[in-house]
Amino acid sequence: MATDDDMWIWDGGRVCLDFTNTLRYRWRTAPEETLRTPDDLVLWLQQAGLLTPGSHDSADAAVLASGRRLRETVDRAVLAVADNRLPLSGDITMLNRSAAQAPRPALQIAVTDGRLEPAGTANIATDASAALALIAQDAVELLLSAEILRVRVCGADECALRFVDRSPARNRRWCSMSRCGNRTKVRLHQARARRSEHTPAD
């Protein structure tokens, strides 16, 4: 079961992108799987705020396999639409079917200035399958929003995490400046320093 604090990264800007990022280093022949067991999936869903605490028995090997299939479906569909292409018809079907299983949000009420008003909705599942449906729902909403055109892949050579670029100039290159951005700048600086050391002086 995953316990490393750095095992999961939450820089995607959307829960569906954070979920796609549970498969790390996608450029490798053998990417790093962080959802190795049903317990890993349950813990991720809980930390993402999609699953009620104490739901440890709500996932088995079949639910884990379903979650991984959903993750790859989301990834293919999001990257396609971000690239101005249509998703595969099978991916659209899977996303629609999965999103349709999402629990209906419970409308909440509050008293404001002596009047009853909506107080938002509580959108959290009590089992892992329903929580996965919430991820599919978020992916559908992203695919239909203008924000889909802001989806990027981290520019670091050894990363490839997906994220929404919400920078004012729309020029964010890294999933995280503190992680990939700084590492890349340090590596480039060191490479320039090595080249200058081997360049003969005039």
Rank of each mutant, 00 (worst) to 15 (best):
L86P: 11
N182L: 09
V78N: 01
T126Q: 05
R26N: 05
R166P: 07
P87G: 01
R195D: 01
D91T: 12
R152H: 11
C180K: 05
R183D: 06
D83Y: 06
S58D: 01
S176W: 11
L188V: 15
L143M: 08
G155P: 15
A62P: 04
A193C: 04
G12C: 05
R194S: 01
R85H: 08
A201W: 10
G67Q: 00
V78Q: 00
G114A: 03
I148W: 13
D138V: 10
I135E: 01
G54C: 04
Q47R: 15
G120T: 09
E32N: 04
D91A: 12
D127Y: 09
G12W: 06
L51A: 03
V153E: 07
S167C: 13
R36K: 14
T73M: 02
Q108W: 05
P103F: 04
D4E: 10
R162E: 00
P53F: 02
L17I: 07
I92T: 13
L188N: 14
R14K: 11
S176R: 13
T22I: 09
A128K: 12
C16Q: 02
R26H: 10
T112R: 15
E197S: 08
T52Q: 00
L70G: 07
L144F: 07
G12Q: 03
A77V: 02
L79T: 12
N182Q: 13
N182M: 13
T20F: 09
R68F: 05
D113S: 15
D91F: 11
V78Y: 01
C154T: 05
R69P: 02
P105Y: 07
S196E: 00
R28M: 13
D165H: 12
N182W: 06
W27P: 06
T121S: 13
Q137H: 12
V140N: 01
R97V: 14
D57V: 11
A65L: 14
S55A: 15
Q137M: 10
C154P: 08
W44T: 07
N84D: 02
D18R: 04
D127L: 08
V140G: 01
V15G: 04
L23N: 04
A139H: 01
L79G: 00
G67I: 07
L142Y: 05
L107R: 12
L79I: 11
W44P: 08
S176N: 09
E32D: 04
R68T: 13
E117A: 15
P118E: 02
V140M: 08
R28T: 10
R194T: 07
R170N: 10
S176I: 12
A128W: 02
P103A: 02
A139I: 02
L142W: 02
S196D: 00
C154A: 06
R97D: 10
D39W: 04
D202N: 12
R104P: 04
